[in-house]
């Protein structure tokens, strides 16, 4: 439902485009992951979905309609973005913070409708946040905070969810809980577009992977097609091997020490 068709993106004032002709699609009911080294253009794609950077050429479409033809509100009710960083300047109750996800559905003075309340309650339930809903946002741990942000995106009620490195700074347990949540959302029919550095976890959870390198797609396909030692070594410019995890059977990247020694 999200399509990038040969998209070129350039930041104002920079000579080289950050994204130089990327084609990818994220479908409903699928977890699509965009991976790649720092500066390969991953977050730039997200900025475009936020409406903060217009393509220089190519098309970005949402359900077949160019995103530039849609109003901001139309985009916001279809697609929610959990961006890389977010520090609320002033603390809110987690429930109120999540309820702000209903912003695109209301007008200046409308009281929360039954649909609003239901969406918030369902988002809290899906993100497993019942116990934390009355907490203040400045009392949450890193992992809880990320789940609360995802819940706000769920409350937004769109069919697509875009996340930019949602598990950075999270420990293994919280990281897994986020990936499990995304997986269950995808199984329930959501379109999930995930930008991540966690290649090994992505390889276990994603239905589709897109590997970016210097603003271009270096490889795309199912995890087994993208997780190839020669490709990753070239893209990440570091000696590595890809093996199979003996416990779960997924491809695993193992970076080697500097001179190619284990």
């Amino acid at each position: 439902m999200i399509h990038f068709d040969n998209v070129v993106l350039r930041y104002a004032g920079s000579q080289e485009p950050a994204v130089q002709g990327v084609t990818l699609e994220a479908l409903a009911g699928r977890l699509t992951a965009v991976v790649g080294p720092n500066g390969s253009g991953k977050s730039t794609l997200v900025r475009t979905l936020l409406g903060r950077l217009a393509p220089e050429s190519g098309r970005v479409t949402l359900d077949g309609r160019p995103i530039s033809d849609l109003t901001r509100r139309q985009v916001a009710t279809t697609l929610a973005v959990v961006s890389q960083r977010e520090e609320p300047a002033f603390p809110l109750r987690a429930r109120d913070f999540i309820a702000l996800g209903r912003y695109p559905h209301g007008s200046a003075f409308s009281a929360p409708s039954a649909a609003d309340r239901e969406a918030v309650a369902s988002a809290i339930a899906r993100a497993d946040l019942e116990a934390l809903a009355e907490r203040s946002t400045d009392e949450l741990s890193g992992g809880e905070w990320q789940r609360v942000r995802i819940a706000r995106a769920l409350a937004q009620g769109g069919r697509a969810l875009v996340l930019d490195e949602p598990t950075t700074f999270l420990d293994v347990g919280h990281e897994m809980s986020v990936f499990e949540l995304l997986d269950s959302l995808a199984r329930a029919g959501q379109c999930i577009l995930l930008v991540s550095h966690q290649l090994n976890l992505v390889a276990r959870f994603a239905d589709q992977m897109v590997l970016l390198h210097r603003g271009l797609v270096a490889a795309t396909g199912r995890p087994a097609d993208v997780m190839r030692g020669d490709v990753l070594e070239r893209v990440y410019e570091w000696p590595l091997v890809v093996t199979r995890d003996p416990a779960v059977g997924a491809p695993v990247l193992v970076p080697l020490r500097g001179r190619g020694t284990p």
Binding site: A76, T77, V81, S83, E86, P88, A153
Partner: peptide, 19 residues
């Protein structure tokens, strides 16, 4: 008021909410 609440979340979050 609602716009202020959303702006206080930060620019990316506010943009994601359609403002």
């Amino acid at each position: 008021g609602r716009d202020l609440d959303v702006l206080a979340l930060g620019e990316d979050a506010a943009a994601s909410l359609g403002i």
